[in-house]
Amino acid sequence: MRRFLPFIIFVSLIGLFIFGLSRQNSVEVRSVLIGKPAPSFALLPLQAGGHGLTNADLSNHDVSGGKPVLINFFASWCVPCRAEHENLMILAREKGIVIYGISYRDRPRDSLAFLDELGNPFTRMVIDGQGRTAIDWGVSGVPETFLVDADGIIRYRHWGPVVGDSLEKRLWPEIEAVLAEKRP
């Protein structure tokens, strides 16, 4: 028995390493804000004459039409944002989801040029130039997308770009689940 002890320790360590390495998304940490009301904020429109956005708008059924919305933190300098943009367009144009875009630490004209080039999936565009609202939302980097239900409660956070199969496998099922609650 004693003779095999080092071997047993070795094998169990290798087992632990394999387990640790094969775990997916070890970087992603579940947002602590899930199940809580959106943090309070009031942001100015990205474009003169546009609508601003406040946390009160998120729970106001007159604004949201009683449907969940997506909040997308983006920036023109953010390469992964470019990569996920097509999926945001699909959500807005084909699925009819309301998406509010929050421009994070970006110059308004750069954000607008970005949307001119790639298309605008956002119902409202607002600006968080100092990144303070992003910190209140627990954003660690752009892009991040939050699913907020009609009562203004944060239901899901998509960390990083919505690319590959993450729209189909992760974000869309969460949206559908929240949509289904309101149907009966």
Partner: peptide, 8 residues
């Protein structure tokens, strides 16, 4: 900070 970003 923890109320925004969690214990992480």
């Amino acid at each position: 900070l923890v109320s925004r970003y969690g214990d992480w």
